[in-house]
Design a protein around this nucleic acid. Structure first.
Lengths: 144, 144
DNA sequence: TATTGTTATACTCTATAACTATA
DNA sequence: TATAGTTATAGAGTATAACAATA
């Protein structure tokens, strides 16, 4: 068996493969991957800008712009809590919720296709290992 | 065992994890991930712009700009073959070769850390499965 | 003074359309 | 006419620095 790539570069290859497909699915829903990730983190609870910037691994100005663009499209809404008028809580709108639900349904339905090359019992094993990796130490919450 | 995420979204999560680390390693070498991927594809052979655009999944104008930026830094060199003076062959310079070799050594050395949560025999199995996925149908050559 | 966010600026990546030079 | 690349333009993403408002 040929083995001319390091495990590191194979992981990058897998990641590129997944991200290309993911970007295509996002585009089908008129979203960018960054917007999809942001929406996903707001799906179940509103969050403040600083918290979100941390979760997404972004600097705050970058998040401000990201939020501007999807707020313009009516997918999220900025709200100022009374107890701290510096802060902003970000909520999804009903349209935003609907959009992100439809997106993740598609992601769940078509991304796992890339595992079709594996025999069924390997797919189950693979899934367990991926779960361990993304919930282990070093996980960044990026996948939402 | 809790299981509240689809396999699709877990794959995206893994991919985000890998890409964040990869982007950091690229930054340590003063490269963006797109530049790293381009250099990697030129590592062993010169290529034409159209071929590269296809391999990278880019439109040709996007590639022109990408090449401009790393050519300015002396990592690649445009060359016109005599037999077709419309064409451009892209070569890595010695500096480019050195840079990409150092980068991929670091990727190979530190990216596999994310698998430390798995027992050793699982890591071997995981690696075999990743190899199958990225060399299977649907593979895009993106990982280089 | 410290914290929360935004504005200003700049650069990279990427897309589409129009263009140039060569075949 | 068809092909190989480039230029023009635009929008998204992200970074740093400077700023405003509130605590």
């Amino acid at each position: 068996m040929k083995h001319d790539q390091s495990l590191g570069s194979q992981l990058v290859g897998l990641s590129v493969l997944v991200q290309r497909r993911h970007a295509q699915i996002c585009a089908d829903h008129c979203l960018t991957p960054a917007q999809a990730q942001l929406l996903c983190m707001l799906k179940d609870q509103p969050r403040g800008m600083s918290e979100l910037a941390g979760l997404l691994g972004l600097a705050k100005p970058g998040l401000s712009g990201l939020v501007d663009r999807i707020e313009r499209r009516g997918l999220v809404r900025r709200e100022t809590p009374e107890h701290d008028r510096r802060a902003v809580m970000l909520h999804t709108t009903p349209l935003g919720k609907e959009t992100v639900d439809a997106l993740w349904a598609d992601v769940g339905a078509s991304l796992p296709d890339i595992l079709d090359v594996l025999p069924a019992e390997d797919r189950v094993h693979f899934e367990r290992m991926v779960t361990a990796i993304i919930t282990g130490p070093g996980a960044c919450g990026g996948g939402c």
